[in-house]
Design a protein around this nucleic acid. Structure first.
Lengths: 141, 141
DNA sequence: ATGAGTGCAAATAGTTTGCAAGCTG
DNA sequence: CAGCTTGCAAACTATTTGCACTCAT
């Protein structure tokens, strides 16, 4: 529940400023996403959303579209799956993730600059990076 | 082809010092693994190994077992899959990974201490972390 | 009305599980 | 010779693709 209306408003604006179409479904999904108090699984979003109808495929495509305009960030899990997080546009950051309950804490530390510089020096382009910390949170221990 | 015989010898010793059984199959797989000049996919190992017989299941179980005693490291890929790397025992490190050809470069930078300290402060235990840099290598660009 | 978005069915990729048979210490 | 290992078949999870239909602009 990221501070409510103004946040939602900014995200809606962000979609309208993008080439994406603001459909009823997307409006609905966006609203449901703001109601989570933590990053969520695609399946959790589907479950909580079940708008008129709903399909995991649409969830994935929507998340991908939103990720493309920078309002959704993807958090890789140890098993290959992902958590998704609705964020301020292009607010890149990392997380501590409980491998049991999937609760996360924000990790304010990012080596993007250093890593990209090193990667470029090695001849890489189109550089991205991940950095996640997994553990058992106090509640799950 | 990590410097050959002495390396292989150390790994064999490592297995013998572990609770794992040193079977003919494992000996064979270990040898094939040393013949790679870069981290490999489970399927690549199967293909190159095809010892008398061979099965992906056994590849995965062997990799898991070797990972358990610290001579195999797992490199997560963007799509949820993994590369595997035969290393000196417990030689934890990270990588630059080409998302096209899967060639990797070693990344000598690890925040394990800092990250674990922060995680513990947040109440996490059994802490692990990942940090990978993905890009297109010079050859693939 | 044109093309992006959606639902349904089906496919994929990578990995895991169960169980009977084989081999190692 | 007990029990770790292996093979085979099958299941699974998360995600993707193809195609016809629908809806936003």
């Amino acid at each position: 529940m990221k501070s409510g209306q103004q946040f939602l408003r900014r995200l809606l604006d962000c979609i309208e400023d993008s080439p994406l179409r603001l459909t009823r479904k997307r409006r609905g999904l966006l609203e449901v996403m703001t109601s989570f108090d933590r990053p969520f699984l695609a399946s959790e979003l589907l479950e909580k959303a079940r708008l008129p109808t709903g399909d995991l495929v649409t969830i994935y495509r929507t998340l991908e579209a939103f990720e493309g305009i920078g309002i959704v960030q993807r958090i890789p899990l140890e098993n290959g799956g992902h958590l998704f997080e609705l964020t301020e546009p292009h607010d890149h950051h990392h997380h501590f993730v409980c491998r049991q309950c999937y609760r996360t804490e924000r990790l304010d530390l990012c080596l993007a600059n250093d890593l990209e510089k090193r990667a470029r020096r090695l001849g890489f382009s189109d550089i991205t990076h991940t950095m996640e910390v997994y553990g058992l949170c106090a509640d799950c221990r």
